[in-house]
Computed example of a mutant assay.
Amino acid sequence: MYDFQPDLSLAPAERYRQLCDAAEALTATEPDGIANMANIAALLWEFVPDLNWAGFYRAIDGELVLGPFVGRPACIRIPFGAGVCGAAAASGEAQLVEDVHAFPGHIACDAASRSELVVPVMRDGHVIAVIDLDSPLPARFTADDAAGIEALAELLSTRI
Rank of each mutant, 00 (worst) to 15 (best):
I78E: 03
F80S: 07
I131A: 00
P68T: 03
V127T: 08
F80Y: 14
A146K: 12
A13K: 01
D145G: 07
Q5E: 15
P104G: 14
A11T: 06
I76T: 12
P138R: 12
E24R: 15
P73N: 03
G125S: 09
L133E: 03
F80V: 09
G92P: 04
G92R: 11
A28H: 10
E154A: 12
L137P: 00
I107K: 04
I40W: 09
D50H: 09
D3P: 04
V127G: 05
D50A: 13
L64H: 08
P68H: 13
I78C: 03
E14Q: 11
L8R: 10
I34D: 12
A74C: 04
D7E: 15
L133H: 04
A54V: 01
I160H: 01
R114H: 08
G62P: 04
M1L: 11
L64R: 03
A102M: 05
H126W: 07
A88D: 07
I40M: 12
V65D: 07
L26Q: 11
G148Q: 06
G148K: 09
P73C: 01
L133T: 02
L156G: 02
G33Q: 08
A139S: 09
A112L: 13
A108L: 13
P138F: 00
G67F: 10
F80L: 11
S135T: 03
L155E: 03
V70S: 05
G67K: 01
A38W: 09
A151P: 03
G125E: 05
R17K: 08
M122D: 05
H106P: 07
G86E: 11
A23V: 13
G105P: 06
V48Y: 01
E116P: 04
N39A: 14
A90W: 06
A89L: 12
D50Q: 08
I160K: 00
R114T: 07
P68Y: 09
G81N: 06
T27C: 15
A28F: 04
E30P: 02
S113K: 04
W45P: 00
V130K: 01
Q5V: 15
A82V: 10
G67N: 08
D132Y: 03
C85D: 06
C85P: 03
I160L: 15
T27D: 09
L156S: 04
V65W: 09
F80D: 07
G92W: 13
D32Y: 10
E46P: 00
A25F: 15
E24N: 14
A112W: 03
E24P: 02
N52D: 11
G148V: 02
P79I: 06
A147L: 14
M37V: 02
T142I: 14
A25R: 15
Y57Q: 02
A146E: 14
T142L: 14
I131H: 02
N36G: 10
G67Q: 05
A153R: 02
A147E: 15
A28P: 01
R114P: 03
R140A: 12
A102H: 11
G92V: 11
I60A: 13
N39V: 13
E116S: 05
V121L: 12
E30N: 14
D7I: 15
G148M: 10
L117S: 09
D145T: 09
S157P: 02
A112R: 15
Y57I: 00
E63Y: 08
A89K: 08
M122Q: 13
E154C: 07
D50K: 06
L43V: 00
P31R: 11
N36W: 13
M122Y: 08
H101I: 01
